[in-house]
Design a protein around this nucleic acid. Structure first.
Length: 512
RNA sequence: GGAGGCGUAGCUCAGUCGGUAGAGCAACGGACUUUUAAUCCGUAGGUCCUGGGUUCGAGCCCCAGCGCCUUCACCA
């Protein structure tokens, strides 16, 4: 790839020469602080039909995305990030009547030889697609009606020494887009839109939780024991202490320590790392939101989850009366209340046998070809649920009351020690949220840590003894509800994105 | 990790039966003071992912490797 060549190729050499020519005009091609530029979207809102003498004076800064040269006039289109994607009508003879995706934050610039002076005109000769320029001028319309800044002065603000993607076709190659995300943001409108939506969604979550009195904290990402979830961790090493460390796989155990410490409503939005496979739904590092509320339980968490998601959906459906957003082929209805159904209920609905029917469950599992020998009943149940139920949960649906053996960090349901007070929220077959009535009994906790589930290898179970955490519980943790939400998947769902790599700006790729 | 697909100019893509490597855009030179994905004339640009093999001859066929995509497994 040309970026990695030590000797600049012909393209770069030509543009470096232009750079020198700009310098020889007494200008800095890289510019500097540039005050008082109006966002282009705002400029486009200014009155444009005034007589020439009354046109407003404006200053803009942006990237050159289109350049047309007609002798002693140059036409530029410059773009900044201030707008939203719109369809614009094409005006050329060849494409008249068709439309094109564009940012409403582009604006045409007219550079006339007589209007910009000798130095400005000389500078304009050195412009290229991809350059960043500042423009002073008056704002109005050309005689063909195009919103235009009629330039009186030009300011070089940054040269592009490498060629940009095709001005029409943009970027199609997925790998190229991921490895050059900065170009993807410029030339694929959806990429910037999704990025900004993600920011707004996360801000909406913060605002919502702040309104409920939760406080946000930051806990360590380097753990001596990677607990709180069932996943393989990344392993690293601290040189000075000469100790093995793990990148965290969950936020849970530290946040619960904070419950012990009297922080009664606490949450964290943070990166967690799982050394597992990569897929359209899995990136090795991803963002989790976990929250804990003292004196709450999983029913409280259900209400918070629903409120939180509805708050996000309202943000994205602003102005519309219905809380519906498309995802793929489906239109998902987020109107509360979401359906609530127990694990056993859904199991019977989709598997066809009741959950306590040991023989029935075994037969059903064997019918799918699953090796059942030596497997605990609950392992078979869990397998069947994942195999036959999860994908069918169009949702939004809260699946609650899980078999207790699957949830070692969860409090048992009062009066039924085999049921854990836990729910997961499913939307379009995706697990979006996971919540518990947390276990605050250190004796049970310690025993559960030690207990191994029949048929599960050690690294796949959550039974990782964390003595420091148990010691914390022994000082007294209030009963609490806890909730975890996969932020990336939530953003996927709400922005109608099919792959996690498009809601993460820089997903992991093999280095080249 | 398994299976399948893809990899050609800076970008987007053609490339027939195995027979001299193509287009549009971008770039370079020229014309043009109202263009709209400007237009017109001209020029240059290639490790056809890499390495082997078959063949008189390979972008194309075979083998191996690398990267990406899809899917399965693991996981959220």
């Amino acid at each position: 790839m040309s970026e990695s060549h030590e000797t600049p190729d012909a393209f770069e050499a030509t543009r470096t020469e232009k750079l020198r020519r700009i310098e020889s005009l007494g200008l800095d091609p890289w510019g500097g602080r540039f005050d008082n530029a109006l966002p282009i979207a705002r400029i486009r809102d200014l009155p444009a039909d005034l007589p020439e003498e009354q046109r407003p004076q404006v200053r803009a800064a942006g990237r050159i995305i289109l350049r047309r040269i007609a002798g002693k006039i140059h036409w530029l289109e410059i773009q900044d990030w201030s707008g939203q994607r719109t369809r614009r009508a094409m005006k050329s003879k060849e494409h008249a009547g068709t439309e094109d995706d564009a940012w409403s934050s582009y604006v045409q610039v007219m550079i006339g030889q007589k209007q910009v002076g000798e130095q400005g005109w000389a500078l304009a000769q050195e412009f290229d697609l991809g350059d960043i320029v500042g423009v002073d001028g008056t704002f109005g319309k050309t005689k063909t009606g195009e919103l235009t800044i009629f330039a009186t002065k030009l300011h070089p603000l940054g040269k592009s020494l490498l060629p940009h993607p095709d001005k029409v076709k943009g970027m199609q190659d997925i790998e190229y887009r991921l490895r050059h995300r900065y170009l993807d943001l410029l030339y694929t409108p959806e990429t910037l839109e999704r990025t900004l939506s993600r920011v707004r969604i996360i801000r909406a979550i913060r605002n919502y939780l702040d309104g409920l009195g939760f406080v946000e904290v930051e806990t360590p990402t380097l753990h001596a024991i990677a607990g709180g979830a069932a996943a393989r961790p990344f392993i690293t090493h601290h040189n000075a202490l000469d100790i093995k460390l793990y990148l965290r796989i969950a936020l849970e155990l530290h946040l619960k320590r904070l419950l012990v410490g009297g922080i009664e409503k606490v949450f964290e939005i943070g990166r967690v790392f799982r050394n597992e496979g990569i897929s359209p739904k899995h990136n090795p590092e991803f963002t989790m939101m976990e929250l804990y509320q003292a004196y709450g339980d999983y029913r409280v968490m259900m209400d918070i989850t629903e409120g939180l998601i509805v708050a996000c959906v309202k943000l994205l459906t602003a102005g519309k009366s219905e809380l519906k957003l498309p995802y793929g082929e489906r239109l998902i209805d987020y109107t509360p209340p979401f359906r609530r159904a127990s694990y056993a209920e859904l199991f019977r609905e989709h598997v066809g046998v009741t959950i306590d029917d040991a023989d029935g469950v075994r037969v059903a599992a064997e019918a799918t070809g699953f090796p059942t020998a030596g497997k605990h009943h609950d392992v078979l149940v869990h397998y069947l649920f994942e195999e036959k139920v999860e994908d069918k949960l169009a949702g939004p649906v809260f699946v609650h009351d899980y078999p207790a053996s699957l949830c070692p960090l969860t409090k048992r349901k009062a009066g039924n020690p085999n049921i854990a007070e836990r729910f997961e929220l499913y939307i379009d077959g995706m697990e979006l949220a996971n919540a518990y009535t947390e276990l605050n009994d250190p004796i049970t906790q310690e025993a559960t840590f030690r207990q191994q589930l029949a048929g599960l290898p050690e690294e796949d179970s959550m039974a990782k003894m964390d003595e420091d955490f148990v010691r914390a519980l022994k000082h007294g943790m209030p009963p609490a509800g806890g909730l975890g939400v996969g932020i990336d998947r939530l953003v996927m769902l709400l922005t109608n994105t099919q792959t996690i790599r498009d809601v993460i700006l820089f997903p992991l790729l093999r280095s080249q």
